[in-house]
Design a binder for these strands. Structure first.
Lengths: 261, 261
DNA sequence: CGCTGTCAAGAGCAGTGCTCGGAAAAGTTG
DNA sequence: CAACTTTTCCGAGCACTGCTCTTGACAGCG
């Protein structure tokens, strides 16, 4: 271009960068499409190149390797799930702790059912020699952040740490140190541990349903899985000391929630 | 074959069958070795053939396809895990319900940590177009059988169905029909649902630990994971109404279990 | 000797990830 | 405009995979 813009990135250079980003996005989109249909193991760089009408070696100018492509898809999946959980949980009245919990759980399960292969990519078997490359840990923490935030608000609405009536063994208290550094000192150990248990139970349940492990255990008629999941969500909430009906349960004993219909 | 031994299996035929079974077993052993080191995605029929010193096409006389080999490994893994859970749970005094529960949980986690790739094969992402070929469902049910058996004995040691004080919504009751047909009518709905939740939570926790999802949440110092898991097991037991100390808890309120150390 | 059944080996096909050299296009400078 | 540099792209190629098909070797039996 003209010599008036020699040093600063010329507009043409910017245009190149733009088309480059555009092509990269197209590659990622195609990859996501293939992932949705064929699963992670069926993701082929050559197939993507064919679909985009370019040579297989050309895509290596945009994506370093198949592993890097997988990593980008993983980050995208974590972000999509985290964003879904955040927005759906944020749409609920802050006082309605049980509603927020149910919204977060529902977001996770709904997104997983809508994007099973993406869910399997991030919560299923990790690829063999693959170690999460640090770019994934931040998006991966988004959904657990939402859940820990609820935990924090549960603790804030409670009268007191309840002395030390039923506490956690000291070695477990030590094991919970990383989670404690995230959630802060306000959440009692018991609640923190119970929250992590509910967190693992939530994803265990979703994975079981998605990976076919509930076959022959929970019915597959329309509505069965929904009913089972909804009741589980209700019970996790009860274990955390929050119930759908009121905002501040007085007694520990959870009243049986009435179904809305 | 010759017409002198047309009907009854000749001794030679038997010998052939024997060596055939022998080679098949060697193939499976080599496959299991490769699976343990390289994971399921890295399992190569050609590599197995090389290791056994035979041509790649020769193994197709013993194993129909890679998928069939995977299926056999899956069945073997389910059997190994189920057997571990059965024996370890059976070694505990039948009256000690909490001990049986802890033994079963510990067996699952211990086997998973010892055989991570085999665990991932059966409880991780299912292979893309793969549907469990009916030969896998029986071995797959072994570990859940153990857990349901404990549930049944919990119900048997209880005073009564506790009226219908806190029951389960009717749609969830319907969803639990398959599990109910296994466990029998003695187990109340609440306990059945709670048991399935603990089941999912157990495998969710094990999967989280194995797949690296606990990173940054639960400590990785020696003993941390053990303490976290042990406390989770204790709390699941408490949610099922069994505590390590006594055999029959009177009140619903779970007493805080004392740690053995 | 021939016949039959089982087995193994080899070549081959279609596909994969990935690398490399050269060609072509695009942008920059004299 | 011409020359130069940078960026992009394609094709060939390597090593690997699952799987098939043809060929050949071996045994037992008539």
């Amino acid at each position: 271009m003209s010599q008036t813009e020699r040093d600063r990135p010329s507009v043409l250079r910017a245009a190149r960068e733009r088309t480059r980003a555009e092509i990269t996005r197209e590659i990622l989109d195609a990859a996501r499409r293939h992932l949705a249909t064929d699963g992670a193991s069926g993701l082929s760089l050559r197939a993507i190149a064919r679909e985009l009408g370019m040579s297989s070696s050309a895509v290596y100018g945009y994506v370093a390797s198949r592993d890097e492509l997988l990593t980008r898809l993983i980050v995208a999946a974590y972000d999509a799930l985290g964003s879904a959980a955040e927005t759906q949980e944020a749409a609920v009245d802050r006082e309605d702790l049980a509603g927020r919990w149910a919204a977060a759980c529902g977001a996770v399960q709904g997104w997983a059912l809508a994007n099973p292969n993406e869910y399997a990519l991030i919560y299923g078997t990790p690829v063999p020699g693959y170690t999460a490359p640090a770019a994934t840990i931040a998006p991966a923490a988004r959904v657990s952040s939402v859940l820990l935030g609820i935990l924090r608000d549960i603790a804030a609405g409670r009268p007191a740490p309840a002395t030390a009536e039923d506490d956690v063994p000291p070695d477990d208290r030590e094991a919970l140190a990383p989670a404690r550094s995230i959630v802060g000192p306000e959440v009692p150990d018991t609640l923190l541990h119970q929250g992590l248990m509910a967190w693992a139970a939530l994803f265990g349940t979703v994975s079981f349903e998605l990976f076919g492990q509930l076959h022959g255990i929970v019915g597959e008629q329309p509505g069965d899985r929904e009913a089972y999941f909804a009741e589980s969500v209700r019970r996790w909430a009860a274990q955390l000391g929050i119930t759908p009906a009121g905002t501040a349960p007085a007694a520990r004993k959870p009243a049986r929630p009435l179904e809305p219909a």
